[in-house]
Design a protein around this nucleic acid. Structure first.
Lengths: 247, 247
DNA sequence: AGACTTTTAAATGTCTGACAAATGGTTTAT
DNA sequence: ATAAACCATTTGTCAGACATTTAAAAGTCT
């Protein structure tokens, strides 16, 4: 109805879709072995290379894994949180870098999601996460820290905050958002960032989380967001100014 | 350091990784044409089939698209929000179905993220989203509606709520969370759900959003979450009870 | 009988070469 | 000038071969 000019898919894409549907629907359970490539090529009436291309597509999405040798083959893969993180981060990163998403929009989304963790995090935070946050804060005070390392530490701090909610699904969803923002953030923070101020925010957030004070943590996080967006605006204006004088 | 038993990757996987890195790093811009398969096979010193398997891997992640014919080839694909949604939903769905995530954990994550949209949504909601919410609520009151259609409408309602924040990044991240929960939710809602009560929650949320009353909307959403989790618990207990009597 | 080695069979990974199909450009015929 | 025929390029598909890996089966020695 919307766009009937859809190309007919390749055979390998069709077959991949067919198998993928079986996996998603649950018709093929985890660790089930698919028929061998030769058997599949008979079943679908295509050549082995076409089957292989289909299987590689599925492997790229971590839907199957393959093993060589006798009793080898393609097995339905149990998607781990680890693998899912990776795909999430790749997708988010590319989406942001290819779609002219404004820094403000990205910040807004990221902090909105992070704020969503605060109530759970301040309720459930364990010494482990507090320790991580403190040690990252400590690291961030070092003058010798490179900008890159400061950013990485920043990510680690926020990651600990998210993990403090002790909800793996939440951690998974946010991993992409936080990690994917880093490259974008870097553009801002490298030039205009006031480390002392950011460390103060971090410190206050950690204190609030430790005190189980969700409201204060949320308030502080909002201030950090406001500061970050303010930075984003000033950097954009600088760029605009530079472009104008260059004309 | 952690697990040195990492298998050496296939050639096609190595090549895919190599090209993927070039795309992510920005060395290959959107719509850039990759060398032809024959050229790539010379460049990497492998056969054309190996190159093709590598390219299919990339195509499966929407990193490239291919075109046949003269002046055809593989092009770096601009990842659209649409495509990213799809991948996000697939990944989230599989992750949940394969990792014994408890319904409570999933609900918690989903509502936490949705709550994160409320402030923005109540500030920016446009007539369009209000209209969608109202019409879905209307639909949900029909007794003739099947359970499946009720669920679909439920998703559409929440989707409208998320979209009301008018932040595409947020919509993207949440699409996966909300859609992926549907199969899990179904298990609960099919058996124990009180439609009237749910419709009342939806209605109150829509009212609050229309009134720009973020606090009320958030409060109501929290009540809906509590009710859903309560349902989840009662269903789990029923199951446990059934299992016990079966012993 | 049990432990070790060798063989074998099955499966994926890779290569080669061929043809089909699509597609844009070029030439030719009208 | 326009349309048709042709051509070159490139991906899509196929067939068959060989390499490599792996587990199990068969064989051998003690």
């Amino acid at each position: 109805m919307k766009d009937s000019a859809e190309k007919p898919l390749d055979l390998s894409a069709q077959i991949a879709t067919s198998i993928r549907d079986s996996i998603i629907s649950g018709a093929l359970n985890v660790d089930t072995r698919l028929p061998s490539e030769s058997e599949l090529s008979e079943e679908f009436n295509v050549s082995r290379s076409t089957i292989r291309e289909a299987l590689k597509r599925l492997a790229a999405q971590s839907l199957i894994r393959t093993q060589r040798g006798a009793s080898g083959g393609a097995f339905v893969n149990k998607l781990t949180f680890q693998e899912a993180y990776g795909q999430q981060i790749t997708t988010s990163t590319l989406l942001l870098s290819m779609n002219e998403v404004s820094l403000v929009t990205a910040c807004e989304a990221r902090f909105a999601m992070e704020r969503a963790c605060i109530p759970l995090a301040s309720e459930r935070r364990k010494p482990e996460q507090l320790k991580t946050m403190r040690s990252e804060i400590q690291k961030q005070t070092l003058k010798s820290l490179s900008d890159e390392d400061f950013c990485a530490s920043d990510v680690a701090f926020h990651r600990a905050l998210v993990d403090a909610a002790h909800n793996p699904v939440l951690s998974f969803q946010l991993a992409g958002a936080v990690e994917a923002m880093q490259p974008l953030m870097n553009m801002v923070t490298y030039t205009a960032r006031d480390r002392v101020r950011i460390v103060a925010f971090h410190s206050n957030i950690a204190d609030a989380i430790e005190d189980h004070d969700a409201d204060l943590a949320e308030f502080t996080l909002q201030n950090l967001e406001a500061y970050t967006i303010e930075l984003a605006h000033s950097v954009l204006q600088e760029k605009a100014g530079a472009r104008k004088t260059a004309d």
